[in-house]
Design a protein around this nucleic acid. Structure first.
Lengths: 334, 334
DNA sequence: ATGAAAGCGCTAACAG
DNA sequence: CTGTTAGCGCTTTCAT
């Protein structure tokens, strides 16, 4: 390994000068700086990020801990984070907590011991313990799901989205919409349920019906089965996320229930496949990429030393994208 | 920050003993070890991974550089890597090269300067430069796509999969299968094309037709348009990956061409949505999760000091999963 | 079995 | 503007 000392020898200067030159500390004679750069180049020198991190007590990496890598929503968030991090000279360590509180805790610990410059987290639930991280002074911003602790966050107005989606179902003439949402301890799941209720109220319908399930295909499928096998089967569904929706669709198709004709569906998240399903799926699209860029912005800001002021919260809007799956007037597709 | 020195003071021993005790270096008196553990616990001590990394000249993190986070194939690989890494005490830094040679180079550099214990890479193309990494002695294993340099790898027999898929199309009675594959500089794209040709030969058909496109929805869509607008339009498609397939499907639907009736489709990768599209999509499923676990295994092995022997290569098989989209006998779905 | 002490490669005072 | 030097927190000889 070629180290700063070697470069110093090669360039005929001191290690301090090499460090300064390589870090662009203006106070270096241009001629010397050039000599140093050349020497470093010649030797194939690469600064040792570990040593630098130890000395500076911080690294140039951000940790992004997401709930589920296979959820397109989160990968879109990740893209947003990555793009702005990259642009500001940070790398991002992407961690997949996998909707598992234990894995999440482990990554939080890793973030702490690796002395990352900051972390962006979509908490498993509001009770996620970030106290250690905070007491270590690591800047944190949460996305998608809130924490009980006050902390910078970027959220989306899920409630409004769910409400609009439910109202839309009613407007299309569906009479018995049900809500399939996430686990009862997930704030987003609760928000979506709350929005569903509001939408029902808007349409003056008092019949409500919902089930909590895991945010996965299997969860959506099981919920659908449960609902359809009950004695007051719904005629339409407001679904909590795209993966669940896949399960709902699977079960509906299995039973020969024609979407957009016999049953209506609206789901959260505009997954890449949503427009190509037959019929195309109506969705509540969340601005995932922007969530990422905004979160990274907030974080960089804190890292840059914005101590003053309490927790900042940015709230983005979701948008209802009407396609065919929610139409009652759609011609049958099977 | 509470450091090892504080723990030493608290426990009334030397820092060396604390270090040894905390790292389980057997040569410590059990009683003392217990006292140290208790003290560390009481103080809320967390080892500083940076300092340890500097001293030991390596960290406990693995870098996994994938071509595209939004491709379900790679996220499945990531899961596999993560599971075995985790089980062995390593964290994994997931990096998204985004099919961009420059981003890939940047992450390779990051992996080097951060002194990761090893890297798993799906190279953008065979020319990807890993010489620096290798000369730094960082263990490397490549997945999915080969490198010209000899290096540990885990690949899948794409050719056989593509061949079987093409033959299957022919067997179903399709007469003019086309191949939509990835960029001409991607080995996987070439393999899939080669397999397609072999499949054609198996069926004694000489007419071949293929187009290279980006491994994305847009790529698939553009390729389909080009093919369909040509004067010898194909009646079926062997598609290079799931994201492209989404584009193909979109374009077919837009034109009112009924899949499984007017046209056949087989695509690489069993994306979660593939069975739920109407009609369900026939796929060549790659053992993505296993690719990840095997790659991590190879890597851990090297990290553990398996210097001897040249590059090891594990080759896995892909499996044709026949569903409806490739059937010619399927009843129309629209 | 335990402690003292020497660094790992780098940056940031502090001098000059 | 440049050089000398003291650590960052930890692991690991080398003594004891």
């Amino acid at each position: 390994m070629v180290k700063i000392k070697d470069v110093a020898a090669e360039a005929g200067v001191s290690v301090a000068t090499v460090s300064r030159a390589l870090n662009g500390h203006s106070t270096v004679d241009p001629a010397l700086a050039a000599r140093v750069t050349a020497a470093a180049e010649r030797l194939g020198y690469r600064p040792n990020a570990i040593a630098r991190g130890l000395r500076r007590q911080k690294t140039d990496v951000l940790a992004l801990i997401i709930s589920d890598v296979s959820n397109p929503f989160y990968t879109a968030v990740a893209r947003g984070v990555e793009d702005v991090a990259q642009a500001n000279g940070y790398s991002v360590l992407l961690c997949n907590a996998d909707e598992d509180a234990e894995k999440e805790a482990r990554y939080l610990r890793v973030a702490e011991v690796e002395q990352v410059a900051g972390v962006i987290l979509s908490p498993h639930n509001a009770a996620t313990d970030v106290s250690r991280l905070r007491s270590s002074g690591v800047p944190l911003v949460v996305v998608d799901r809130p924490l009980t602790d006050p902390v910078d966050s970027v959220m989306v107005r899920s409630i409004d989205g769910a409400r609009a989606a439910t109202r839309h179902l009613l407007d299309e003439g569906w009479l018995r919409p049900a809500c399939i949402t996430g686990p009862a301890d997930a704030a987003t799941a609760l928000d979506r349920l709350a929005g569903y209720r509001l939408g029902l109220a808007d349409g003056n319908v008092s019949r409500e019906q919902f089930v909590h399930a895991r945010f996965s295909q299997e969860g959506g499928l099981a919920a659908t089965t449960e609902l359809l096998d009950g004695d007051d089967a719904p005629d339409s569904f407001m679904v909590g996320n795209a993966q669940m929706a896949l399960g709902v669709i699977a079960e509906l198709k299995r039973r020969g229930i024609r979407i957009g004709y016999d049953a209506g569906i609206v789901t959260f998240d505009d997954a890449p496949w949503a427009p190509y399903i037959d019929p195309p799926i109506t969705v509540v699209a969340q601005p995932a990429y922007e969530i990422g860029t905004r979160a990274a912005g907030l974080l960089l800001d804190r890292i840059g030393g914005a101590e003053r002021g309490g927790a900042r919260e940015v709230v983005l809007s979701a948008e209802l994208l009407v396609r065919e799956s929610s139409r009652r007037t759609a011609s049958p597709h099977h």
